[in-house]
């Protein structure tokens, strides 16, 4: 399915408005001074079409920060599984880095035993991607992680070609959704050419941002598990947990029970959790298997660059740059990889 359509920019507002009457539409909007966040919108002009990644990635729609997975009644006692039937939602403005994040989560949650809650939500989500014609900022490493160009994970994919969006269809559902709004026309050769030019220009703009080659990343990380780089990072990290919460491919969670004030009924919820948090690897007896912050950071990196290769055949880093951008201590992904790469050489 490689069908190209065009949406005129003048129709963009009407397109979003029409869509939002049919279902929920979420898109990046300005949040505060320097940031953006995916939020529900009803108008196209509320959307920020900037390339800077949002504070949280769109994973929050697939796996919300808090989600009920069960209800219980202590009096019986009985547990009922809850697999929410969420409303249909379109997520507009998902950049290629985040598309690759969603693809990774799909692989993890679709691996048996499958995560019913995640998959039920996914079934009701339509993803509309949006190309970055230029870098968001210097923290991104999407070229190095090969995520700067679209390669699936979307129902529709938008590229800004000036006075219009070139729209690539990625699924039958995406195509139907576009056709139903009535704003899309088939792309002509002139528009095709404009897209080609943008991609050519991107080749010049986007350069490998990290000093280790894609194919060598795993080996570098496997060779440097005992590196002093981890000690150094450990001494700088404050374990605020920002890096894992904002990561598009972090999916660790905690399971907690909440009881109502009648002390009888309640629910079991899952809440995002992260390996940087103090209590994450503690067992009931009190032993903490990753007591040092350096060990926790190493674990986070290994989960991006070493372990998933074996399990899912891909890296779990999308190059979005969020972890570096949000780090209180300015621990930089690019610098870390560079330092490890240098060490692996010797």
């Amino acid at each position: 399915m490689n069908h190209y359509m065009v949406l005129k920019k003048k129709d963009f507002n009407a397109f979003i408005e029409k869509l939002s009457k049919k279902m929920k539409v979420a898109a990046p909007v300005r949040k505060g001074v320097k940031n953006f966040a995916f939020e529900e919108v009803t108008r196209g002009d509320a959307i920020s079409r900037v390339s800077l990644p949002t504070i949280l990635p769109p994973k929050k729609y697939f796996m919300p920060q808090r989600e009920t997975i069960q209800t219980f009644d202590r009096a019986v006692p009985r547990w009922n599984s809850v697999v929410s039937e969420n409303d249909a939602i379109v997520i507009f403005g998902v950049h290629t880095c985040d598309l690759s994040g969603i693809q990774f989560l799909n692989a993890v949650m679709g691996t048996p035993p499958k995560d019913a809650n995640y998959l039920a939500r996914k079934a009701n989500i339509t993803v509309i991607g949006l190309e970055c014609n230029d870098y968001c900022d210097a923290y991104a490493s999407c070229k190095a992680m090969k995520t700067h160009l679209p390669s699936g994970g979307y129902d529709l994919f938008f590229t800004d070609i000036g006075d219009a969006f070139m729209v690539q269809t990625g699924s039958a559902a995406g195509e139907t959704l576009a056709q139903e709004t009535g704003f899309f026309t088939t792309a002509d050769t002139g528009e095709q050419k404009k897209l080609g030019n943008i991609r050519k220009k991107k080749e010049k703009i986007f350069k490998d941002e990290i000093s280790v080659k894609y194919a060598n990343l795993r080996t570098v990380f496997e060779k440097t598990v005992q590196s002093e780089v981890w000690e150094d990072i450990g001494s700088r990290c404050v374990a605020c947990g920002n890096c894992t919460n904002v990561c598009p491919t972090c999916y660790c969670f905690d399971i907690q029970d909440e009881i109502d004030l009648n002390l009888r009924t309640g629910r079991r919820v899952r809440v995002w959790d992260g390996c940087q948090n103090e209590e994450f690897a503690k067992v009931a007896g009190g032993e903490n298997f990753r007591r040092k912050r350096g060990q926790r950071q190493r674990h986070r990196y290994m989960r991006k660059f070493a372990y998933p290769m074996e399990k899912y055949g891909t890296y779990a880093c999308t190059g979005c740059g969020r972890c570096t951008r949000t780090c209180m201590a300015k621990i930089s992904l690019k610098e870390t990889i560079h330092a490890l790469g240098e060490e692996a050489k010797s």
Partner: peptide, 19 residues
Amino acid sequence: DHAVCVECKLNENECLYDK
């Protein structure tokens, strides 16, 4: 026993240091 930042990020607040 983890930082307020953890909950703050889940609430998707803009970091005050950014302000």
